[in-house]
C-alpha cells in the first residue's frame, strides 16, 4: 500500500511517499513560497528515484490548510487532480488537527501563526472542537483550571502571549515542534473516511478584504 503525502501550506514544502515499512522517499524543501516551481518536480524526482510508477500509488493524503492561501491551492490542486485522474483514494486533514496528532491532554491547543494578535487556532477538548481564525483576546481562549498542552510550529508572539494568558489560571505545557510527525499524521489521516477528489478544497478560515466589505 503506497501513500503520497503533500503539505504545501507553509514556506517549507513537504512531499513523501510511504508504505507499510515507513518512508519510500521524503523531501522537505524551502521553496521560498514558490511551491509551484517545486511540487511536481519533487514528486516526479521522488517517484523516479524510488522506481515507483505514479499509477502504483494507492492513496493521496493532503493537508488542506489553514496557511498560505496560494501554497495550499498548489498542493490541493495537484493532489485532487492526481487522485481523480488515477481513480485513487484521497484523504485530507487540516493542519491544525495534524499538529495535535500524537499528543494527549485534557485540552490540546494548536496554533498556526499569522499575526502577533491574530492566528489560526485549534482547540480540542474531548469531543469539542474549535478550528478558527482567532484574536488573542477571544473568549474561546479564556480557560480556567484546565490541563492544557499548546502545540505550535513557531515560537511567535501569538503563542507566547497565549501561553502567558493561560498559565495564570491553568496548568499549561508549551510544546514548540520543528515539524509535523509525518508518519503519525499520515496514518491518522488514513483512518478518516476517504473523500471524493472533486469535493476537496482548501480551508482558509480567514476572510479576505473584499469579503469583509
Amino acid at each position: 500500500m503506497k501513500t503520497l503525502f503533500i503539505d504545501s501550506s507553509r514556506k517549507t514544502l513537504s512531499v513523501a511517499l510511504v508504505n507499510e515499512d515507513g518512508f519510500v522517499f521524503k523531501s522537505n524543501v524551502n521553496t521560498y513560497s514558490k511551491h509551484s516551481n517545486f511540487l511536481m518536480n519533487e514528486i516526479n524526482k521522488g517517484l523516479n528515484t524510488a522506481k515507483v510508477n505514479v499509477s502504483e500509488i494507492d492513496n493521496f493524503v493532503v493537508l488542506n490548510g489553514p496557511g498560505s492561501f496560494t501554497g495550499i491551492r498548489v498542493g490541493i490542486t495537484v493532489a485532487k487532480t492526481l487522485a481523480w485522474v488515477l481513480g485513487k483514494k484521497m484523504y485530507v486533514l487540516n493542519n491544525l488537527e495534524a499538529l495535535k496528532v500524537g499528543n494527549q491532554n485534557e485540552v490540546l491547543i494548536t496554533t498556526i501563526y499569522d499575526k502577533p494578535d491574530h492566528s489560526y487556532v485549534g482547540i480540542y477538548e474531548g469531543n469539542k472542537v474549535v478550528e478558527d481564525y482567532l484574536s488573542i483576546d477571544d473568549d474561546k481562549l479564556k480557560m480556567k483550571d484546565k490541563n492544557i498542552t499548546i502545540i505550535s510550529l513557531d515560537e511567535c508572539d501569538f503563542v507566547n502571549k497565549l501561553y502567558d494568558n493561560l498559565k495564570q489560571y491553568n496548568n499549561v505545557n508549551l510544546k514548540i515542534i520543528d515539524d509535523y510527525e509525518y508518519l503519525k499524521v499520515i496514518n491518522y489521516a488514513l483512518l478518516k473516511p476517504s473523500i471524493n477528489p472533486h469535493l476537496i478544497e482548501p480551508i482558509y478560515l480567514k476572510k479576505i478584504d473584499a469579503q469583509k466589505k
Binding site: T77, V78, L82, V85
Partner: peptide
C-alpha cells in the same frame, strides 16, 4: 497569477499521471 497557477498545477499533474 493565482488563477493561472491552478490550471498549470492541474495540467502538470495530468501530464505526470497520463
Amino acid at each position: 497569477n493565482g488563477a493561472l497557477l491552478v490550471g498549470i498545477e492541474a495540467a502538470k499533474a495530468l501530464s505526470l499521471a497520463t
